Simulated scan of single mutants.
Amino acid sequence: MTGKPTILVVDDEISNIEILGAILDKDYEVCFALSGAQALEVAGHVRPDLILLDIVMPGLDGYQTCLLLKESPGLSDLPVIFTTALDASESEVRGLSLGAVDYVTKPFQPVVLRQRIGNHIRLKQQRDQLASLAMTDPLTGLANRRGLESRLQAELDRLARTDGKLSVIMLDIDCFKTFNDSHGHPAGDRCLKMVGRALEGAVQRAGDLCARYGGEEFACILPGVGHGGAMHLGETIRAGIEALAIPHASSAAGAVVTASLGVASGNCASRLPAEEWILAADRMLYRSKHLGRNRVTGQHLGGSATCLPQAWPQPMQSQAML
């Protein structure tokens, strides 16, 4: 990885791809597709920062390809610049009306092309930065509730195609109101930051997401993780928070800050709504609190049926393995 922005060049003429590659390869990573269908596939894998899209192509033309890109939830925000030998104003108007951000004609003027691309790349980077800030909790630096819900829906859509596994963990700091009352809100903020760092330290896979769901409640999304793995990770998180040894004399769960966790796991082909996964994990979280706090309780979601809850820590012989 070079850190350069990535541009996808879509053109059925190899010579045009070579010309654009020569113009752009100093400042950008350039990949290419020879058809509209291939462009959709490559864009889904590569997630380029900008697409240069030829209009006149066999099969899907540029207009049709642009329309499909804009209808795709994961690709609709990618800026598209049409490249064409057509110079009629009607063609330009049609392209812009489909969501393209610009329109350049062949033969290419390298200086002008690089300037236009640079402008649109900078605009996209600014939009991405604003979008990231809108989905980030400013205190902990984790994703916020909006970011978690957006990511959860995207993962459910992706994993539903292959009936993939997914787990959601909800976490609540035990007796946090009394902690704030006893130690003050600045200490409460420091506690939340430490818990957030402990959460990130335990959840280490690149595809997982940690979030501050609200107040003293945190959450994790674990794509591809089954019930057993999520329960083990939940116990690692629980033990890690307890090991922070943050004094909490007014807690009903112990002398230090602890957390109660709920786990919901299942396969995604059932297409349960995202809110059902959150609610299931939240129910398990409150069961953990009911059982005495500072523990992990989990449930495997099997379509319309659910298995009996399992809770840790408890004696091994009483665990109902799912």
Rank of each mutant, 00 (worst) to 15 (best):
P5T: 02
T6Q: 12
I7H: 03
V9C: 00
D12W: 08
I14Y: 09
N16F: 01
N16C: 05
I17P: 00
I17N: 00
A22W: 08
L24I: 01
D25K: 15
K26Q: 10
V30P: 00
L34Y: 14
G36Y: 09
E41R: 04
E41K: 10
E41D: 13
V42Y: 03
A43F: 08
R47G: 03
P48A: 04
D54G: 08
G62T: 01
C66G: 03
L67F: 12
E71N: 10
S72I: 14
L75H: 03
S76R: 13
S76K: 13
F82P: 00
F82W: 05
A85Q: 09
L86W: 04
A88D: 14
L96P: 01
S97Q: 08
L98T: 00
G99N: 05
Y103F: 14
V104I: 15
V111I: 15
L113I: 13
L113K: 01
I117K: 07
N119G: 01
Q126L: 14
A131W: 08
L133W: 12
M135Y: 11
P138A: 06
P138W: 07
T140Q: 05
G141Q: 06
R145A: 12
R151E: 11
R151H: 13
Q153T: 15
L156D: 03
R161S: 09
V168T: 02
D172K: 03
H183W: 14
A187G: 05
C191K: 04
E200K: 15
E200P: 04
E200V: 10
G201A: 15
A202V: 09
A202C: 15
C210V: 13
A211S: 07
R212F: 04
G214Q: 02
E217Y: 11
F218K: 02
F218S: 00
A219V: 12
C220M: 12
A230M: 10
M231G: 01
H232L: 15
E235G: 02
E235H: 09
A239W: 13
G240M: 14
I241L: 04
E242N: 07
I246A: 06
P247V: 14
H248R: 02
A249L: 10
G254E: 04
A259I: 03
S260M: 05
P273R: 01
A274I: 12
E276I: 06
A281G: 02
M284L: 10
L285I: 09
Y286K: 01
R287K: 11
R287F: 09
K289R: 12
N294K: 12
N294L: 07
Q299T: 06
Q299C: 11
H300S: 11
G302P: 05
C307G: 12
C307V: 14
L308W: 10
Q310N: 07
A311V: 10
Q317T: 13
Q317V: 14
M321I: 13
